[in-house]
Simulated assay, not measured.
Amino acid sequence: MTLASTAGPAGTRILGLGHYRPGNVITNHDLIARGVDTDDEWIKSRVGITERRWADPDETIVDMAEQAGSKALAASGVAASEVDLVLVATCTMPTPVPSAAPALAHRLGIEAPGAYDVNSGCSGFVYALNTASAAVLTGQARNVLVVASERFSGWLDMADRSTCIILADAAGAAVVGPSDAIGLGPVVWGSDGEQAGTVTIDEDSRFFQQEGQAVYRWATGEMAPVALAACERAGVDPSEIAAFVPHQANLRIIDALARRIGLPNAIVARDIETSGNTSAATIPLALSRMVERGEIPSGAPVLLLGFGAGLAYAGQVVLAP
């Protein structure tokens, strides 16, 4: 026998974006005052960060996701009653159960949607974005809310200056819905599980740890071809890309990738300078802030490139809402 299936639209696109950054601004000088063995020039020269945001002690991943998600819904014009699926990309939930997505849906007044979390580290938003697109294309959902929310301030070893200076808290969100044309290009994704141990949470201390040089070599050496493949699959020449929004891991990595890909007309997201590295949240946070500032015209092609823990990666060209 053959089972019946649902039919979806011709394409999907991002209908609206939203973001949230906590109010606590932590400058490089604040870290020094807290006893971190570093200095302002060392941090800026190594990773390009001048300040980052940390959540209040009682501010949760769901709290931040609610702020970003509500803004994305408002920007999209999609009502909560029209959302059938809620996805939260995160790797920093304090416990594995319950997941963030059902609680977030309840907070936003989204009644009985499909709801689950996606944990693919720093590439999590792009993974979730494509899961959302597939749900709409196959008729499983009318609209999908995708939120990336991370709270790294609860996982930091303040004696490890290689990590505590980088990581931060934030949330970014997108509403994915139907479109007569293709607004989300084909994804190019994969992983290098042989190096999965380079980015971890220590089982005993519960502190974030990474082998920074190994990740730097991998990202700068392997990710440019992924980005170029995403452009090719979308039928877009790199010279046509209006903005490049990679994972905000390190300013040196971002600049090296932009040079190696060759994006002569693209604005390059450098949100890490004032937001820090917020893992899965970096891409939607940076993209939302760029759109809010009017730096990317509606309908312009944007290259997204997530990479990090896993080591998993995902590249994709999307049209700006």
Rank of each mutant, 00 (worst) to 15 (best):
D271I: 00
T220A: 07
A224T: 08
L305E: 03
L285N: 11
T220Q: 10
P284Y: 01
G262L: 09
L228E: 15
E240R: 08
E203I: 00
R259K: 09
F307M: 10
D204R: 01
A258L: 02
R259G: 13
F244G: 06
V236N: 04
R289D: 10
E273T: 03
G299C: 10
W218S: 12
G212P: 15
I254P: 10
L304P: 06
E295F: 01
A229R: 13
R289I: 04
R233M: 11
G235F: 02
G221Q: 02
L304K: 05
D255E: 15
W218N: 12
Y216W: 11
F244D: 11
E222A: 14
I296Q: 02
F207C: 13
Q213R: 15
F307W: 02
A256E: 14
G294P: 14
R233L: 13
A256V: 03
A214T: 12
P284W: 04
M290S: 01
F208W: 06
D255P: 11
R293W: 00
V291F: 05
N265L: 03
L305P: 04
Q209H: 02
I283G: 03
R206L: 04
E273I: 07
Q213S: 14
R289V: 02
R270W: 07
S239R: 09
R293F: 08
L305I: 01
A258N: 05
V245T: 03
V215Q: 00
A234D: 14
L285W: 08
L228S: 13
A219I: 01
A286T: 01
I253Q: 09
G306P: 14
I267N: 12
C231G: 06
A224C: 10
A234I: 05
G310T: 09
P297M: 10
L228T: 14
N250G: 08
A281C: 11
M290H: 01
R206H: 15
L303G: 12
G294L: 00
D237E: 10
M290N: 02
G299E: 06
M223T: 02
A300H: 00
F208A: 08
S275P: 02
L263E: 14
R217C: 09
G310S: 06
Y216M: 08
A229V: 11
F244L: 10
E211Y: 02
V245C: 10
E232I: 00
R233A: 14
I267P: 09
N250D: 05
D255W: 04
L251C: 08
I254Y: 03
P264N: 00
A266S: 07
A286V: 00
A224I: 04
T220K: 03
P301G: 14
Q213A: 13
G221L: 09
A224F: 02
M223H: 10
